[in-house]
Design a protein around this nucleic acid. Structure first.
Lengths: 310, 310
DNA sequence: GGCTGCGATACCGCATCGGTATCGTCCCGG
DNA sequence: CCGGGACGATACCGATGCGGTATCGCAGCC
């Protein structure tokens, strides 16, 4: 704990290093823009603190002792490391260094989130980005416990200590088996799906994507024919692939290509599904600000083109 | 060159580290045995010098910012390294750390020198010992050019800037072919060897072992029958092994066992051969002093037992 | 609402910094 | 052989800035 470092300061290292490198007090004094006596005094003091003679004073300048050569190397190293420490701290203050824990969940991991993460990694290469697969409740818990900096999720839920931002509105698509009677249409409406066998997800957490999808039917006084509830979009599409029925997926899930699965867009005005970012209301770290900025830049501010791009 | 390190001192690191670890200015002040205001001031100054806010002042102590956490790690590292720098410098001052370049030459490398080196390595494990095979002239040159700290050699030659110490006096032995007419004797005299076919070494540098051996004959008004001059003891013994004749070797060379070679000791009063250590007269480094001390301890101060031990 | 504990601020005495002037010493040239 | 010049060390001085005491402002809490 209490060290023998005593009263040694960087000034001693700077002065000694200059003198040792110049092999002269006077020359070092010029380089440092100070007069010569302070150098003599600081080096003397350093030697006294160390209990070691570092320089051999000679009529024509100074020579290093063996211990002095060792200390010179150490001092140079320390000074260089101190500079690096400054750099790293200033980078951290600008959000260019550190660690960002990101919670991810659901179909957005197949497109929107990777695009954001990738862009952030390019812009902030020294930041370690760690992804955590957590559902909404897990993200909220982890955020409160500081294990997470930001979470991506669907659906907006009010919490006093957290804030949500909608960062993307994705269109909905219908995934259906290749041989399905609707598979040759170019786009579909909710009404087209009334009474069709459907796979829905996720079973939990509630409310979730499943409720939003079912709500689309109820709002139109239509009935959804749920043949299977599953946990996630991948399982749902796997069941579609084996002919169980159809399911609804966001644009991001279009990257999931399984054999015998056809994706058709819903009419654009039928439904949009939000992608939200959740974070602590009191977190104003530069890292998070930078991440939000990247997310806003990467994700299109308006859903139009995405919905059209299928 | 000129750094952004500015006026940052170890004091700033020590104070900040204490505050950051205690999560409190007051608690840190107690641990450091100073009052609280200086801590506030030093940390403020550090933040100003860095241009970065390191701590979030809160009603119940302080919290680290992201940049503060980075700087804390850096500061701890720097302080630990500074301690190590002190240790290493002080070890160097005591001759326990550094590099020792040792010149070796001749038959002593087969016994006496390895014993010294081994003992020194045990006593000073952090000192890097580098051996250089150099003849006497090479050692003298390397010593003057500071490429060598100490050299082992035979024969004492006065030099103004160098000092020699005799560290060992070894007895002489005769190496002769197994079938030689003298091979069944238990010990020999110079007179016994008069007129015998001899291999002698080294051809250079002169004067050298060769001259000392030949001098033994001349001094007794005997003649040495030189059949071959070679460069080194190994070659000489190889020739003995193949029946060329006999040769003279020091005790150290007795470790060289070649088939068909018999070693017989010379009468002890016939001749002794010195092993010398050469060094700069102005080199009073702790490392060299320690090495000399080890050499004196390891090598027997009197030749008697060695001569008798064969 | 007063109490308590926190960090920040104001101010003070003094240690210590860097500056100027000078000394002692050695090298070197006339 | 002696004087000039360059080096590091020393003496001394003013100013900076350290750490100290006293106090403020503020927030949480009984």
């Amino acid at each position: 704990m209490s060290s023998r470092l005593g009263a040694i300061e960087f000034r001693h290292l700077r002065y000694f290093t200059a003198v040792a490198e110049a092999r002269s007090f006077r020359a070092a004094a010029q380089q440092l823009h100070v007069s010569q006596p302070p150098l003599t005094r600081q080096v003397q003091q350093l030697e006294e603190l160390l209990g070691v003679v570092l320089l051999e004073r000679q009529p024509r300048g100074v020579e290093l002792t063996a211990a002095g050569a060792v200390f010179l190397e150490e001092a140079r190293n320390l000074l260089a490391l101190a500079e690096q420490a400054l750099d790293r701290t200033q980078m951290a203050a600008q959000g260019q260094l550190g660690r960002l824990d990101v919670g991810v969940y659901g179909s957005a991991v197949f497109d929107a989130i990777p695009r954001v993460i990738q862009a952030f990694r390019v812009a902030h290469p020294k930041v370690e980005v760690v992804l955590h697969n957590l559902d909404r409740a897990g993200q909220i818990k982890a955020l409160r416990e500081r294990r997470l900096t930001v979470g991506f999720n669907r659906f907006f839920i009010e919490e006093p200590d957290l804030v949500w931002d909608v960062v993307l509105a994705e269109a909905l698509n219908v995934a259906l088996p290749a041989g399905h009677r609707l598979a040759d249409r170019s786009r579909l409406t909710i009404a087209d799906l009334s009474g069709e066998a459907m796979v829905v997800y996720p079973r939990s957490p509630r409310p979730g994507f499943i409720d939003q999808v079912l709500g689309l039917f109820h709002r139109r006084h239509l009935t959804a024919q749920v043949v299977q509830e599953v946990d996630d979009v991948v399982t749902a599409i796997a069941l579609v692939s084996s002919g169980f029925g159809l399911t609804m997926v966001s644009d991001s899930a279009l990257n999931l290509r399984l054999p015998g699965v056809v994706y058709l867009p819903l009419e654009r005005n039928e439904a949009l599904i939000d992608l939200c970012m959740i974070r602590r209301i009191d977190d104003d770290s530069a890292l998070l600000r930078a991440f939000i900025e990247v997310a806003r830049t990467v994700l299109p501010p308006l859903p139009d083109e995405l919905a059209g791009a299928r």
